[in-house]
């Protein structure tokens, strides 16, 4: 108990926890795109950066309230998602992946070349307005939204596209429109997450949102268990905190981290919680309970 209190009041751990929550919000967006709808996106960090810069610039220049800036940042990212989505979601699999990756790189280079974003110098002096509490509230809200989306007519249509897009279309689903909608919602989440990130770090640099960050987010979604919300939460938490826990082997932590990525995939290619269904767990549990009762 004492230990927990120490962690919760230590600024360093608060920072790590806040960051975990921020990444979780972006990861949930990617979960909707890749885990639920089955569309590859290798450029999620690019959308995060759109939200981050939009929100930060609004705060710096228009002094509008944070919540509004986060929302506008999310909408800007979502709008970019729609813009990219309409032409490119006709592509499938790796082609879509590489297109999204390319888009994110272009966004990054554009931010490097813009004056208002501070170019390669980065954008400094953003007020620290993101708190752990705010991040928790937004993250919980995001999880709640995601659950509702997945258990609805809308979510079923997305899952149908993931499972078999030709059959989905034959069931009356306009697959392109639904993919674009999933992309819009997913990138909206990335944008909101980016806005929170900007007001936590107080400094933005285009290099923060490169390919590596995009692939990190993909890792969060896949390693926990693709298509599962608990999996995404688990993946994000473990992978954001793992490098922190590996600090005792500081020099080798990235080496261990990357080796674990390979080992994880070999032994659990569907992720930690992949193929585990809550319903099955509950059923297995009740079955065991009833056999225990019977034996008594």
């Amino acid at each position: 108990m004492d230990g927990i209190m120490r962690i919760l009041t230590d600024p360093y751990y608060i920072q790590v926890l806040t960051l975990t929550g921020i990444y979780l919000i972006a990861a949930l967006g990617l979960h909707l795109i890749t885990g639920v709808t089955g569309q590859f996106s290798f450029g999620h960090a690019g959308f995060m950066s759109i939200g981050a810069y939009t929100a930060a610039l609004l705060t710096l220049h228009l002094h509008t309230p944070l919540i509004l800036n986060l929302l506008v940042g999310g909408l800007a990212a979502g709008f970019a998602g729609i813009l990219l989505g309409f032409p490119s979601l006709k592509l499938t699999g790796d082609y879509l992946g590489i297109t999204t990756l390319g888009f994110a790189e272009i966004v990054r280079v554009v931010f490097i070349n813009m004056k208002i974003t501070g170019g390669t110098q980065g954008l400094a002096g953003i007020p620290k307005e993101t708190s752990l509490l705010l991040v928790i509230v937004v993250a919980v809200l995001s999880v709640w939204c995601m659950y509702r989306i997945q258990n609805s007519r809308f979510g079923r249509a997305l899952m149908a596209i993931r499972e078999d897009d030709i059959a989905a279309e034959a069931m009356g689903i306009n697959t392109l429109i639904y993919k674009v909608k999933a992309f819009a919602v997913g990138t909206f989440f990335a944008g909101v997450s980016g806005g929170l990130y900007a007001h936590l770090m107080q400094y933005l640099n285009p290099f923060d949102f490169g390919v590596t960050r995009s692939f990190d987010l993909l890792n969060f979604v896949v390693l926990g268990g693709l298509g599962s919300i608990p999996g995404t939460i688990l993946g994000t938490t473990v992978l954001t905190m793992a490098p922190e826990f590996l600090r005792f082997v500081n020099k080798y932590r990235m080496l261990i981290y990357s080796a674990l990525m390979v080992i994880m995939m070999i032994f659990r290619p569907n992720g930690l919680l992949g193929g585990v269904h809550l319903k099955d767990l509950r059923r297995a549990f009740t079955r065991r309970r009833s056999t225990e009762m019977a034996s008594q």
Binding site: T34, L218, L226, Y252, L255, S258, N270
Partner: peptide, 30 residues
């Protein structure tokens, strides 16, 4: 890193490939 994953989902070997890539970058840097 790839052969054991030949019959799994499309994303698994991709993540594995990213892992190898990161591993080699880190190794050479070290």
């Amino acid at each position: 890193a790839y052969r054991p994953l030949r019959n799994s989902t499309r994303l698994a070997p991709l993540i594995s490939a990213l892992g190898v890539s990161l591993f080699l970058q880190t190794l050479v840097t070290l």
